[in-house]
């Protein structure tokens, strides 16, 4: 339905059921370690925070500490590698952060992004809704969607998570080194 040649009104069909939940795996833990530390050997050093440490990290970072377990690896070059997960409005993001021996951020990589509401494609007539499709292009049900556009979703949970991990490093991991 066109309002003009440049403005197209897209009909919103009845919301029958969920479209597919978006779940993307970007990197495995091993791949992220290699991306950040190359061939340097990585040693797992899982950390369990006590109540006092959790309080101190909360105070230093201004971010609530919800779990006591921190997934930590030490690189042979003295760097650190931490894996964490944060929950946003409707998404679960697992990410890794690499720190050099002095606690400076080398790199942040999202490992996995998952939107929670799952389900099947159940839109009646959804195949008619392709927009901006060139004549002759074939589209089949089940073809992958290659991206999603929408209002920008804030990633403040990730930036909060990074702040919490940096405080964890400064207060707990650095003194261990």
């Amino acid at each position: 339905m066109s309002v003009s040649s440049r403005i197209v009104l897209l009909p919103l069909v009845a919301l029958v059921a969920s479209a597919p939940a978006r779940a993307t795996v970007y990197l495995s833990i091993e791949d992220a370690q290699q991306a950040m530390f190359g061939a340097a050997a990585m040693t797992a050093q899982p950390l369990t925070l006590d109540a006092i440490q959790m309080k101190a990290i909360e105070k230093a970072s201004g971010v609530p500490v919800r779990g006591s377990l921190v997934r930590v690896w030490r690189a042979a070059d003295g760097g650190w590698f931490l894996v964490d997960a944060v929950i946003g409005k409707s998404e679960l993001i697992t990410y890794a952060i690499g720190l050099d021996a002095d606690g400076r951020v080398k790199q942040v990589e999202v490992l996995e992004y998952r939107e929670s509401h799952g389900g099947e494609i159940r839109y009646p007539g959804w195949r008619k809704q392709f927009v901006n499709k060139k004549a002759g292009d074939e589209l089949r049900v089940g073809d992958d969607i290659q991206g999603i556009s929408g209002a920008t979703l804030s990633c403040e949970h990730v930036t909060d998570g990074i702040r919490r991990l940096l405080a964890t490093w400064a207060l707990v991991l650095k003194p261990l080194a």
């Binding site: 897209l10 919103l12 069909v13 919301l15 969920s18 479209a19 939940a21 978006r22 409707s90 998404e91 939107e115 929670s116 509401h117 839109y123 959804w126 809704q129 392709f130 927009v131 901006n132 499709k133 060139k134 292009d137 589209l139 969607i145 999603i148 556009s149 929408g150 209002a151």
Partner: peptide, 11 residues
């Protein structure tokens, strides 16, 4: 109406 779902596909 339900932003964790999609409603249209654009090429």
């Amino acid at each position: 109406r339900a932003p964790s779902q999609w409603s249209q596909i654009v090429e």
